[in-house]
């Protein structure tokens, strides 16, 4: 991980030096901005979302899936249960600590997956559905203000902290200056190669009793594959349910029971 850190320093250093003087966010403001993004999406209680994923690839059939995402952010627990189409029913993922497990009821097997796992064979990642932990996982630097369509945005570069396993070590964010919402996100590999570009055109918020404030979630994410240029992925969060979940839900046994 030391190499990650070095590389991050190399990538981020010059960028930082090159940052324009005008309208720069102070380090404190920057920190605040990132923390706000995380905080808005945090859910104190349990969280359950019904999602739709559509993967388009050149010369191939679209892959369409529905899944339920379960989160218990306090324990950093996360589980996916695929519900549609029929052939995918009962498959799922379970994250415990640093382990991401995938399950296939057809063979009754659990497999260890990595942070880079393509969820259900699409170009979405675990982090697209999980709570936002940008402040914990990354160091941010400010790059300047610019226009994104009709919006004025802050451009930020985030690099992964040493010793933390993330799908992409470098992330660029375009954050709406007026509302503080992420509108565009680009992810880069260690080599500096651009891997994905994602757009967040719709943010929803929902009042949580346990949090005593709104929980924000992206209702729509459009991901464009920067390696296979003709591939794209659409993620829709169709609805969110904040009722508390069964205590033993985040276990292998629970997911296994769903298809038995």
């Amino acid at each position: 991980m030391r190499s990650t850190f070095l590389l991050t320093a190399l990538v981020a250093g010059p960028l930082f030096l090159a940052a324009p003087a005008e309208a720069a966010l102070s380090p404190d403001e920057l920190k605040k901005l990132i923390e706000t993004i995380d905080e808005r999406q945090r859910s104190t209680g349990d969280y359950k979302a019904l999602c739709y994923i559509e993967q388009k690839e050149k010369d191939k059939n679209d892959i369409v899936r529905e899944l339920v995402v379960y989160r218990r952010d306090a324990d950093q627990k996360l589980m996916f249960l695929f519900t549609k189409p029929k052939s995918e029913e009962g498959k799922g993922y379970l994250r415990i600590d640093k382990n991401l497990w995938s399950y296939d009821p057809n063979v009754g097997k659990w497999e260890r997956a990595t942070e880079r796992e393509r969820i259900g064979g699409t170009n979405s990642r675990r982090s697209d559905f999980d709570e936002s932990r940008l402040a914990i996982e990354y160091d941010a630097s400010y790059e300047g203000e610019e226009k994104l369509g009709a919006f004025t945005v802050h451009r930020l570069v985030l690099s992964a902290k040493a010793g933390i396993d993330v799908a992409y070590p470098v992330v660029k964010l375009w954050v709406d200056t007026s509302t503080g919402n992420i509108l565009k996100r680009q992810e880069l590999a260690l080599s500096g190669r651009l891997m994905r570009t994602a757009y967040y055109p719709k943010w929803n918020k929902l009042f949580s009793d346990s949090k005593k404030s709104d929980i924000w979630f992206p209702a729509e994410i459009r991901i464009y594959d920067e390696v296979e240029k003709s591939n794209s992925t659409l993620v829709l969060m169709k609805s969110v349910d904040l009722h508390s979940l069964e205590a033993n839900l985040f276990t292998k046994a629970w997911l296994e029971a769903k298809s038995r």
């Binding site: 369509g149 757009y199 055109p201 943010w203 929803n204 918020k205 609805s239």
Partner: peptide, 21 residues
Amino acid sequence: AEAELFGGGGPVVAEAKEGSI
């Protein structure tokens, strides 16, 4: 994508209704 999604400058944020899944 950028023009279509953000060109209009309309509101990005909406209030969601809690669903029961």
